[in-house]
Amino acid sequence: MSPLELDHSTGVATGDPMLPDWYTVERVRRENHDTFTLELRARDGETHFAFLPGQFNMLYVFGVGEAPISISGNPAATDRVVHTTRAVGTVTRAMWRFKRGDAIGVRGPFGTHWPVEQAEGRDLVLVTGGIGLAPLRPVIYHVLAHRQAYGRVVLLYGARTPDDLLYDEELLFPPQPLSIDVDVTVDRAVAGWRGRIGVVTSLISRAPIHPDNAVAMLCGPEVMMRFAVQALMTRGVPVDRIYVSLERNMKCGVGFCGHCQYGPAFICRDGPVFRFDAIERFFGVREI
């Protein structure tokens, strides 16, 4: 039984927010040279983990430390917890070495979520780069399960090289085409790459959406999102229908530790997903 339970009406997990619950690593899947997906199940009893697309967990490695990692599984599949992350810090490097059966501490879910319900009836454009696809995968699961509720759905995805692409078999180049448009580009091509080359923001100008009826969701390096917001606004997507997911250092996940402050917001509590107009005045401030 999790010490934290999601209250769906508020998106807030209730219980002792500082105490991790123990899960077992059920599966480790290497996505590419530094990115991997963990599938977790409760250590004791049945797994029941509800979350909203865009929320994150604080994942704890025994004696090593904790890191905020977005949840990238299917929000309808509450019998497991799925995280995709990159082995780039002390904690995530330790996770990279995980094997089936290892224990991992989980606190969460925390934070705000993508506006999948408000976006019903509209076109969706997801602009993502690198590991930024992981926090948006729950949105794609949700859309595919409620396909009739949305108009045109476009995933624009950029990666460094073709070797860095994430979820390529299941999402980017699936055996059966999905009912969404997927446009993939890489910054640097390698021999044999027949796809697009160039930055992901270049895909926005020709994305097959109706800008005046579209909702945009952005996740990736902040500098990429700065250019993407500009390109979306040039297309005519209203500023109050652009959502961004931000990242900062986090220690507690619940607004006590102060590390993730962004202007007046705590990204852990008031984010990570923000409607762009709420943070626009801080978006261009250096070292905010």
Partner: peptide, 17 residues
């Protein structure tokens, strides 16, 4: 201008750690 901006962004190698 769009090509120029895209090239600048590409130059940043934003996904590198």
């Amino acid at each position: 201008v769009q090509r120029l901006q895209a090239t600048r962004l590409q130059l940043l190698d934003v996904y590198d750690v």
